[in-house]
Computed example of a mutant assay.
Amino acid sequence: MSAVSPPAKLSRHAPKGQQTKAAIVDAALGLAAQIGLEGLSIGAVAELTQMSKSGVFAHFGSREELQISVVREYHARFEQEVFYPALKSPRGLPRLTAMFANWMKRTSTEIDSGCIYISGASEFDDRPGPVRDALVESVSIWQAAVLRAIEQAKEEGHLRADADARQVGFEIHGLILALHYEARFLRVPGSIDRAHLGFDNILARVAAPDAPATQGKPAGRRLKTVR
């Protein structure tokens, strides 16, 4: 099962070159989800799209530019699937909870195919350059959005005034990383439930005393039997 979400639809009146480039990026993103950014090559994408190497090269100019395009496309789809829908929820814990729920939904599907943010961090953590910069920028934008949602929850009085927003964000991000490790690498049953329970526990710890009953309180989530 692929975790790659559908690409944004281009107008049928978009230039043919733009449509072709979008199709190449879509194919490259699907390939990168399986083999990582480092595994991408002009030749592999050309074979996958049944194009010539020169045809693919003409749209990107280098393997590095192809990789960067894939990172940017992944980020755009991540925002469309995880971030923007959460903005429909009220500021504060409703929005933060929606962001985490959307993030978990996407992460749950990526257990089978992998997350480009996580695999990319492993591949490029010690390799300075434009691809690493693109990855860092994308992840940093998302982390800033999570931090902003936590700060807004404090402003709304849903979280305690003395709650350390960065610590809360760190722990939430840690749940996603742990889920990938436990579920994708170790194949531990019940990992998704544990991640949800971990989020409930974080909110219960930092919730304001007068937070709404359905927010920031122990959710009573029960783990499925772990075998």
Rank of each mutant, 00 (worst) to 15 (best):
A86Y: 00
R72T: 02
H196D: 07
P15D: 00
L186M: 13
V226L: 08
G157Y: 03
P128K: 09
Q50C: 09
L147G: 06
F78A: 04
R184E: 00
S140T: 11
H158W: 07
H59Y: 13
R194M: 14
A207V: 10
L177T: 07
S41K: 02
H75G: 02
L177G: 04
I68L: 07
M99W: 07
G220S: 07
K21Q: 08
T214P: 01
D162Q: 12
S119T: 10
I176R: 07
A27Y: 10
I192L: 14
I116Q: 03
V139Y: 00
R222D: 09
K16D: 00
V82I: 15
G61C: 05
T225G: 12
P90Q: 05
A207K: 09
R127Q: 08
L186F: 14
S69A: 13
A183R: 14
A204Q: 09
A204S: 12
G114W: 00
S113Q: 01
I68R: 04
L29N: 00
V146W: 09
S54V: 11
M104E: 12
D26A: 06
P189L: 03
I68M: 02
L66P: 02
H75M: 12
D125R: 14
R194I: 04
I192Q: 11
F78G: 01
V226M: 08
S52D: 13
V45S: 00
S113N: 00
N102S: 04
R72C: 10
L66Q: 05
A213R: 04
P130W: 02
Q143L: 12
G92E: 08
I150F: 06
H59N: 12
V131G: 03
Q34R: 11
G92I: 08
P85E: 03
D162L: 01
G190L: 06
S52E: 14
E64Y: 10
E110H: 02
